[in-house]
Amino acid sequence: MTEEETAAAIARDPEHVRHLLRQMVRVRRFEEACVELYSATKIRGFLHVYIGEEAVATGVMSVLAPDDAVVATYREHGHALLRGVSANAIMAEMYGHAEGCCRGRGGSMHLFDAATRFYGGNAIVAGGLPLAVGLALADKLSGRDRVTVCFFGEGAVAEGEFHESMNLAALWDLPVLFCCENNLYAMGTALERSESQTDIALKASGYAIAAWAVDGMDVLAVEEAARRAVDAVRAGAGPHFLELRTYRFRAHSMFDPERYREKAEVERWMERDPIELLRAALETQGRLSADEWSALQHEVEEEVQAAIAFAEAGTLEPVEELTRFVYSERTAP
């Protein structure tokens, strides 16, 4: 968005823009805490953080209705939090505790929540795309006007499941919004070394899906694009596709020595930190005082600390329960 457009958006509804800022800060602080807890061995397994990419999920989630569905990847703590899963339940899950949103069975990469129609967390690259197509198919067949939103990385674009899903969604005219989080890397593989055509929105257009690219560091731009797309999908205009251009500031996971990219490149992108961009814009417009900013940070910190305390106080699922949920539990007739 241009400076004028940003100023206009802020002037229109400063309270809402501050809300978006708070949402991004929630995700950022939650994940910074996760990284510390990982180093302290409270969280184990793989941990993939979204730091730098917060504007994407924040902008998209902001326009969804409560009964829409969300499908995400293994980099999904922020998505779950923004969708309305409690920080407590997410943190407890990462601790492997019974109070976690999956009773300790899923961990960081597999967060699920039926109440918010959050269909995971999927640790198989591109594994969520066909699921999203099916969820949308169910809505279409049932005559509901719900939208399914599917997040995935640009690495997934190379997988067969991506192409098969694009085709089915377009062929059957399904109510699904595909959100490609293009952070330029799939682990250590840069986009230009994995795709012959690096214009991902163009690729989606090849399946006759309405698709365009958006500045994924600008939460207002993301929100506007998402609103347009979600409204169109809900109105029956068929699948839509957003390529959200973003960058991950941290390593791929906690095991990544980042041999494949220059520090200078990371630093360049960090100058476009989505949180800093929005905070600066609000301040320039006189819509965020120093007191408001510190109050916001303070409240977020309280939420994160409360989540840690909740997880710390959690309990282990009894080992006798190990084989539960392999099959559905039927109540006796």
Binding site: G96, G104, R105, L316, E317, V319
Partner: peptide, 8 residues
């Protein structure tokens, strides 16, 4: 399916 929590 192999669970996440260490003890499980």
């Amino acid at each position: 399916p192999v669970p996440y929590a260490r003890h499980l």
